[in-house]
């Protein structure tokens, strides 16, 4: 039974691992930290898996556990932003896919997002993943109105970081 549980979990995690990678990408800024957080999220997902009922989508459930691990449970936060490392690891756009201005703007945007605090990053992450405000508010434990207000503030903050 346990083997079966393990097998089904690993299969689901393998399919949806990009969600975990994306959380790690947002909250860490180097390869080792990324792997470390990935490991911790995997442990937390696995520990919580026996209680996963399947009434929620596995991916939705992963967002919650992943973010909770990143902003609350994970202790080894690497606070310093190493832009060079961040650029090479996080930003691998093929040169021919974008014109220079857009590429430049995206680069700036990614580093601006990295400058946000943990909670703002979580909101941005859910927004980028196309979650609606109801889901965002449920994941974070705040009201829908406040999620919306905060999101607008984050947008303004990003704009300020980009155009000082």
């Amino acid at each position: 039974m346990n083997k079966q549980l393990e097998h089904s979990f690993v299969e689901l995690l393998e399919t949806h691992q990009n969600i975990v990678h994306k959380v790690c990408r947002l909250y860490t800024n180097n390869y080792d930290a990324h792997n470390d957080l990935f490991q911790e999220i995997t442990i937390q997902l696995w520990k919580a898996y026996p209680k996963f009922r399947g009434d929620a989508k596995f991916s939705t459930w992963m967002y919650r556990v992943g973010l909770n691990t990143a902003i609350t449970l994970y202790r080894k936060s690497k606070r310093t932003i190493n832009t060079t490392e961040f650029d090479t690891v996080q930003f691998k756009i093929k040169a021919d896919e974008y014109d220079d201005t857009e590429e430049q703007q995206l680069k700036l945007l990614y580093s601006a997002v990295h400058e946000l605090n943990d909670i703002e990053k979580a909101l941005v992450f859910l927004y980028l993943e196309d979650k609606n405000y109801k889901e965002i508010s449920e994941t974070m434990g705040i009201s829908e109105v406040n999620a919306r207000v905060k999101m607008n503030r984050v947008k303004t903050k990003l704009r300020t970081i980009l155009n000082p």
């Binding site: 979990f9 690993v10 442990i43 696995w46 609350t72 994970y74």
Partner: peptide, 13 residues
């Protein structure tokens, strides 16, 4: 992924 399940958590809890 399998070996990751056996690792110990280092969470705040």
């Amino acid at each position: 992924l399998y070996p990751m399940l056996l690792k110990k958590s280092s969470s705040i809890v």
